[in-house]
């Protein structure tokens, strides 16, 4: 399934790339030099034990977390970083703000703005950051809500929604900005088990559309079925990388096999 698509995208320049990305918190080195690139249309699941640095890595890609060293390219453009005291600093805030409108993020805890209704949450960034017209964006926002099955809840506030509904609204909020890449930071980890499915279904549809997605997750079955590539982080380094077939087939990488078997034992 995934190999023809990879062949298709092999020549295009990466949408996101890192070189020697490092991050330490105090004396603890969380990322020990990650070289990574993602191409258009790839669905990459980032797996790893807790503390392996996978969320930190994802958060470094849109600079919610500032790396300590390394380089970051987004859409072929090098992101300006300058040296700071204990980590790099953003050199040009406007560049980062501009790139961030194209790199949407979905958070573990949804992080919808609690003083706005669902519809207002969707319209906020397109109207105030991208400067698009309210009428135009309202139509798109409604269509997006219909897509994630939340039309009836569009005037509700986040506190009035279930976790699954909040996360679907958060995905819609990300999509309505028309991003080129979607980052998912453990999108189902804060959900009750019976609500996980509805969120994974929305994500599966997005993957089928050919969207570029980077997903930090603990959902092994989802990662195996949906990803075009798996990135396995192990103690702050890339422990293994490959297609789901390669990695989940076993025997490719002993650390990954160990991780999966531990996971299956639950």
């Amino acid at each position: 399934m995934t190999s023809p698509m990879q062949a298709n995208t092999a020549n295009t320049s990466p949408v996101i790339a890192t070189e020697g990305l490092r991050k330490h918190f105090g004396t603890v080195e969380v990322l020990k030099g990650i070289d990574f690139s993602a191409r258009d249309g790839e669905v990459i699941s980032i797996l790893g034990a807790s503390g392996s640095g996978k969320s930190t890595f994802l958060r470094c890609l849109n600079l919610l977390e500032m790396p300590s060293a390394g380089r970051l390219h987004i859409f072929g453009e090098e992101v300006g970083l300058r040296a700071g005291k204990d980590r790099l600093r953003i050199a040009n805030r406007r560049q980062v703000d501009r790139l961030r409108t194209q790199v949407a993020m979905v958070f573990q805890n949804f992080c919808l703005w609690s003083h706005m209704t669902v519809l207002e949450n969707l319209m906020e960034a397109p109207v105030h950051v991208q400067g698009r017209s309210r009428a135009e964006i309202r139509e798109e926002a409604e269509a997006m809500l219909a897509r994630v099955g939340l039309t009836a809840r569009r005037d509700a506030y986040p506190a009035q929604l279930s976790g699954g509904q909040q996360q679907r609204a958060a995905i819609a909020r990300a999509l309505v900005m028309k991003p080129r890449v979607l980052l998912f930071d453990e999108p189902t980890s804060a959900l009750d088990p019976e609500l996980v499915g509805e969120v994974l279904k929305v994500m599966r549809d997005l993957a089928d559309e050919g969207r570029t997605m980077l997903i930090v997750t603990h959902e092994m079955a989802f990662a195996r079925d949906v990803s075009s590539r798996i990135l396995f982080l192990d103690q702050g380094q890339i422990g293994a990388e490959g297609t789901p077939q390669q990695l989940f087939g076993g025997g490719h990488n002993p650390r990954f096999d160990q991780f999966v078997s531990r996971f299956n034992q639950g």
């Binding site: 961030r100 993020m105 703005w113 609690s114």
Partner: peptide
């Protein structure tokens, strides 16, 4: 909620 501020920053809000 820090997350809500991060969510704004992640959308490119200055």
């Amino acid at each position: 909620n820090r997350g809500q501020i991060e969510a704004g920053a992640a959308c490119g809000m200055p």
